[in-house]
Structures are given as structure tokens and as C-alpha cells.
């Protein structure tokens, strides 16, 4: 009985050791915002995350993000784009699991409300979706590009999430 009491007392003493209220630790935020959008964004960079507007899941392995069937990105128009146009580039991987399950996939994009020609991909692996954007489509300092896939993995097909492609980066490059 004595040993049991001692054991209970030891537990209580251990628990009471930090009995003075410590100040809750502080976690600093990053406040020095770059107010200008970037023309080239990396999916793995948290600083660019806000430009991956919709249809993107969390950053994985610090370098890429899964998309849903529809996703959109906002980019800053590069200098001189309103005069010379620019080149749009989306780097992504088409996972084997997607091709196996749904077959070839077509990727379409709408650039600030203007549809761009779609492209079909029938092999898994790394791809780059590239389009020349005429100067006339740049009407403001930034543009919104809405992408959509004709086929993707519906939620529950492989995992609970709806899955499209794996995006690494997107950019608008000056000509």
C-alpha cells in the first residue's frame, strides 16, 4: 500500500512540476508581402500558393500539387506582353494511374475568358502545355487561366479525392 501511495505521489509531483504558467509560445507570421503577382509560379513554393487559385490540393514533397478536374491559376502579365504577347507554359505530370484508368486526357485552357486550343495527351509522364498568347488578350496587369481536363479520376475511384494531373509550375514568358 505504501509503495502504491508513493507511486501516486510521484506521479502528482511530476505533473505539478511545471505548475507555473508559462507564456504560450509565439509563432511569427511572414508579413513582408510582395504585393505584385509573379509571372512564373512554382507549385511547391508557399509564396506562390495564393496564385494557385482553385482546384489545387496541398503542396506535396515541397514541389508539386495534385489538381482536380478543373483548376485555375492567376499570373502577372510579363512586361511588354500587351504589345508583343507572351508564351504560356504549364509543366505537369500525367500519372500512370490516371492514364490507365481513363485513357488519353485532353487539357483545355481559357485565358481571361478566351478559349485556347486544347491538347490531348495519351502517354503518362512529364508534359508541357504551351500556347502563344497574342498581345490583344492582355487587358490588365494580371490574367486568370482556367484549365479543365476532359477526363479525370472521380472522387472515390482511386482515393477519396477527385484527381486530375500533377502540376509543377506555370509561367507567362515575355517574347
Amino acid at each position: 500500500m505504501r509503495r502504491l501511495t508513493l507511486l501516486a505521489a510521484a506521479a502528482l509531483v511530476l505533473a505539478a512540476t511545471p505548475a507555473c504558467k508559462r507564456q504560450t509560445a509565439k509563432v511569427e507570421t511572414i508579413e513582408n508581402e510582395q504585393p505584385q503577382l509573379a509571372s512564373a509560379v512554382s507549385a511547391g513554393d508557399p509564396a506562390h500558393a495564393v496564385q494557385f487559385v482553385q482546384g489545387f490540393y496541398d503542396i506535396e514533397q515541397g514541389s508539386w500539387r495534385w489538381t482536380r478536374g478543373k483548376f485555375s491559376i492567376t499570373l502577372q502579365a510579363p512586361a511588354g506582353a500587351a504589345q508583343k504577347g507572351a508564351a504560356l507554359e504549364l509543366k505537369f505530370s500525367l500519372p500512370e494511374a490516371v492514364v490507365k484508368k481513363v485513357g488519353p486526357v485532353a487539357l483545355s485552357a481559357v485565358f481571361d475568358g478566351n478559349p485556347l486550343p486544347p491538347e490531348k495527351y495519351d502517354k503518362d509522364g512529364e508534359h508541357v502545355f504551351q500556347r502563344d498568347i497574342p498581345a490583344g488578350l492582355f487587358r490588365g496587369p494580371s490574367v486568370n487561366i482556367e484549365f479543365s481536363l476532359d477526363k479525370f479520376l472521380a472522387a472515390g475511384a482511386v482515393e477519396e479525392r477527385e484527381l486530375g494531373i500533377i502540376v509543377q509550375s506555370a509561367a507567362l514568358m515575355a517574347k
Binding site: T29, P46, A49, D58
Partner: peptide, 15 residues
């Protein structure tokens, strides 16, 4: 999305 919260108010407001 990152380990620390990043203030993106201005960028978000622009978009």
C-alpha cells in the same frame, strides 16, 4: 499552405 502563415492580403485583394 506553408509551415508559417504568410500575409497575402494585397495579392489576394488584387485577384
Amino acid at each position: 499552405g506553408g509551415p508559417r502563415l504568410r500575409n497575402v492580403t494585397q495579392t489576394y485583394a488584387n485577384m
